[in-house]
Design a protein around this nucleic acid. Sequence first.
DNA 1: CTGAAAGCGCTTACAG
DNA 2: CTGAAAGCGCTTACAG
Lengths: 341, 341
Amino acid sequence: MNESTGPATIDDVAREAGVSTATVSRALRNHPYVADATRQRVQEAAARLRYVANPNAARLASGATSTVGLLAPVLTSWYTGEVVAGVEEVFAEAGYDLLIGTADPSARERMLAGETRFRQRVDGVLLVDVMCREEGAVRLATLDVPVVVLGEELQAVTSVSVDNIAGARMAADHLLQLGHRHIGVIGGKSYAEQARDVPNDRTTGFRAALVDAGVPLPDHWVQDGGFTIEGGRLAMHALVRQPNPPTAVFAMSDEMAFGALQALRELGLTPGVHMSVVGFDDHTVSEAIGLTTVRQPVRAIGRTGAHVLLERLEGLSTIAHHPMPLTLVERASTGVPHSMP
Amino acid sequence: MNESTGPATIDDVAREAGVSTATVSRALRNHPYVADATRQRVQEAAARLRYVANPNAARLASGATSTVGLLAPVLTSWYTGEVVAGVEEVFAEAGYDLLIGTADPSARERMLAGETRFRQRVDGVLLVDVMCREEGAVRLATLDVPVVVLGEELQAVTSVSVDNIAGARMAADHLLQLGHRHIGVIGGKSYAEQARDVPNDRTTGFRAALVDAGVPLPDHWVQDGGFTIEGGRLAMHALVRQPNPPTAVFAMSDEMAFGALQALRELGLTPGVHMSVVGFDDHTVSEAIGLTTVRQPVRAIGRTGAHVLLERLEGLSTIAHHPMPLTLVERASTGVPHSMP
DNA sequence: CTGAAAGCGCTTACAG
DNA sequence: CTGAAAGCGCTTACAG
């Protein structure tokens, strides 16, 4: 049948089916205006020759890349990994390839510009936790491909995010309701004092809840944990070492909370008894560890981001913000206040 | 300067530099036999026009895809995620795109065939924990692209793996040295009784060590944990519920060990005191949890796999097996035997 | 509903 | 060291 070497081309299929290559192209991509009988003949011929269209040729000819780019400051955190998994799920099903790029947070400019790696290669871009703020978003809106931003609420481009201020307030209210009045915070560096980014918003919400309850938050009870396990461990040690330590701590990520719990174990203190700890995320292992936390629907954030980008690619939707829900999950790491042993 | 719409093409650069497109192509890809002065002129012209070669056109013309495929039965485990991160690191630096595919383990045939999605799209394939065995490897060797298999030692294709039998023996020896004589196992289903796969090898190594020490391993002390956290939790409950429970347990993955520790917490038992638990992996949070475990260099496994595939793509290396080291990490979850409270 | 033909933007023998 | 030209394998007006 097919005497040529290498995989079958569209010409082989055209010959086999006795039609033109144009007809093969149309029949196989379910274009209208192809006679049913013809379409069937082409499909059979293609199947017989195990024909698969060469994507590079198709993309070159059509101008579409069938690829979307995803950019995130850090790819190795649990959070980003889950978001990417959600995004990948949706795009794989839709027949898009995903091109993933990193750039350290300081290279924000480059990320906003869409990174060289993506030029001419993607039909759309997904930005995860880049924190462009409205000025950046306005610039993103001028790119020649649609952009969806995950992690903050924006006007100029489509965005998907949780309300970090409200989430931190949930954590605070939970501790306040248990009766805590001496509460510390393990956070991370903000990009800028006034910027609305994740650590800033969570600090703002937490502080506001304490103010509402008339509970002070002294500066020395706010420690930087760098959003890592080890950082959380060191921060908790620093908190406990103080002359008048808090009875409860809000860690702005579950990974920092894991480190905080590790510190308690090292000190022979029991979480939820000698010290309450509430995290933020609901990491895969938080349930097993018994960590009380503010749950983010991380997979769903990724899936939603992918869906809305898909809709924008198909010209179906306009710019909008998509809020995602947060819920407090109570587990063993929090309890009523208790003095140190 | 450039009056055309859209991004600059190779023709624009040729015109700007006053040379042919062939020369532009050669100059920009650092081919030999281009005069230094010419190369520089072309590079400047390209920079001025912000020219980036259209990868689809380049790939179509050259026949190279500059893409490698990665196939794994499950993409969501911590282990696979880390391997993929390692692989991605190396290929991103080498200028390759990574195309990731899944297929549930039962679709092994399809995976061995390289999956339709990859046909004509990749220059090479990386198989993660597919467990093809030698028969499968022989078939893989006949594909028209080089293949590297991660997770088992093979003859017919290049492979990268740890020695699971030896690793399980490390776990057993550690518990035996502590004085344990009543030891249970939390494992997972094997593909086939006689196959050399991960759970089978770990069972084999563990059992062999116990036999050498004259310690029995009754069937009811071997529980299936399905390689999930929840499965590990249920398995530990089943073990403790027995009339004569073991004093120590080997969980074949850290995630199952996390579930096992969760069960102990639910039962008010202290790990390393009332029950010793040793895992396998050294998951990111195992240190924080204090889990004794057999550490796999998971990132390095991914990076090594990517490197050897790269070498094969460049025709630099021949088929070989690359063993990776395993080390026991002692933490708080194991201790001397102790009766239940 | 179908075909002939141009064109997508590169790379690569071939010739000089 | 450089250029003219063919070709990679598709898609898509255009014409019928």
